[in-house]
């Protein structure tokens, strides 16, 4: 469904992505692991159109989306739940959801989807008039996911959804990821929490220093190796 080939992205003269290639298959959960500074968030922003790649191709269902504006990419059915959630703090929960549906014109469909989000995330319904900035971290994460879903994406990108959340909330976030996937949403997930991520992923990639260095199916053998590299960011830890 999503195919990234040989993508390079730079901040000024510093290349954060040095030719990244990977793909996310339709209906599955694909996970990207890697240590801090590997370029995972840069890749997410590049796919979503916030950053422009220097070169390479990004295809969504075969159509080239590299270099399009983020507005055009959202309209084509790709949504990103950004790192740190980035909810609109001074807007109510309901307004955040409306903002997520900004590119849609079907008022009835939007109202229906908001009701559907409230059904899926009852906490958001309870707090629908509350300012998003006053929500807890876990609630903000649910809101960020719901906001992204409001654009009716065919593929959902999630950047570190467990970041800064208590272990119990992390469990909840991952069960939401699984249930979204069961409902047919393709998911491409970036995570630091390799253990949790490998628990839900069908396929995973490991990224280090701007390159994909490992790709495989989750399994016991792979997991040890990958967790070590994802956390320590080295090929062989001397410890």
């Amino acid at each position: 469904m999503l195919q990234v080939s040989d993508v390079e992205t730079a901040y000024g003269k510093i290349k954060a992505l040095k030719g990244v290639s990977l793909s996310a298959a339709k209906g599955r959960i694909t996970c990207l692991l890697g240590p801090n500074g590997a370029g995972k968030t840069t890749l997410m922003y590049t796919i979503a159109g916030i950053l422009r790649p220097l070169r390479g191709s990004i295809r969504l269902d075969g159509q080239e989306i590299a270099g399009l504006t983020s507005a055009a990419i959202v309209s084509r059915g790709l949504a990103l739940v950004p790192e740190n959630r980035l909810v609109f703090p001074q807007m109510s929960v309901k307004e955040n959801l409306e903002a997520g549906a900004y590119r849609r014109k079907d008022a009835a469909g939007i109202a229906e989807d908001i009701a559907r989000m409230y059904a899926r995330f009852p906490r958001l319904q309870e707090r629908r008039e509350q300012l998003a900035g006053t929500l807890s971290g876990g609630e903000q994460q649910m809101l960020a996911v719901a906001r992204a879903l409001m654009s009716r994406p065919r593929i959902l990108l999630m950047d570190e959804p467990s970041l800064g959340l208590a272990p119990m909330i992390v469990e909840e976030v991952f069960s939401i990821i699984k249930s979204l996937n069961r409902d047919g949403v393709t998911i491409f997930l970036v995570e630091q929490n390799a253990h949790m991520a490998l628990g839900v992923a069908h396929h995973f990639y490991l990224m280090e220093q701007g390159r994909v260095t490992f790709s495989g199916e989750p399994g016991k053998l792979a997991e040890d190796e990958v967790i070590q590299r994802a956390y320590l960011g080295t090929r062989r830890a001397s410890a």
């Binding site: 916030i50 504006t69 309209s75 950004p82 980035l86 903002a99 997520g100 906001r147 654009s151």
Partner: peptide, 13 residues
């Protein structure tokens, strides 16, 4: 004004 990156992700220009 509150969150320019997220605004773009929502499809605002």
């Amino acid at each position: 004004s509150q969150q320019p990156v997220a605004a773009q992700l929502c499809g605002m220009r």
